[in-house]
Write a protein that binds this DNA or RNA. Sequence first.
DNA 1: ACTCGGATTCTCT
DNA 2: GAGAATCCGAGTA
Length: 237
Amino acid sequence: MISPAMTRQSSASKIRLPGKLVPRAFFEHPPEQVAPLLLGKLLVRRIEGRQPRNERIVAGRIVEVEAYLGPHNDPPDPAAHAHRGPTPRNAVLFGPAGHAYVYSIYGMHYCMNISCEPAGRAGCVLIRALEPVAGLREMARNRGLDPGVAARELTGGPSRLCRALGLTRAAHNGVDLLAARSPLQVRDDGFAVAEYCVTPRIGITHAADRPLRFALPGHGCVSGPRSLTGARVICVG
DNA sequence: ACTCGGATTCTCT
DNA sequence: GAGAATCCGAGTA
């Protein structure tokens, strides 16, 4: 008898993760600097099978992010969870860089961020949209959608992508994204971004005009593509 | 203890 | 374009 788990992944050897882990120093900088550099990187969720060799991955390429600044900044960023200082909820943001800050919102969704700045300072980048690159069927299943739906429906939105990757606060808040054995990682496969858009952040009421949202121009997975029209475009290099 | 509102998404009009 | 769903952290008392 052959189970789906056995046929899903070749049992020949351990799964090969795409690209290489991003170095910690990449995130030890202000989030408004890190955010645009994060575009094009991969967010990889590793899922264990019954046997170690049955591990599988669900992964997406980052195509939209927002920066949220720590309380040491002038002017401050009142839209950021960290802006009033450390609390039990936002503790991860004041810890070392490159860790996942996953919080629940509206009682039914999660959003996922990556901590920035050296330990002791807060700041983070919110991941707002991915382009699915691996585990598409599992993403659709996690989202309760039919396989074959538009990629944007899978991972175009901060809570959609958490659902697609199976991310929760209980399981993933505080996870080190830059360790070889981590179940959730940020990796670089060499994808080069030629240009990106800069716009105000979405869905906030404070500091709503600051240009701290970054996205790949014209990418179909970006949430609210209309919000990119007329946006300033920055050429890389 | 109690209130308030949110870094959203989905459905319906 | 509007409204509902639904819970917990943070601020105030």
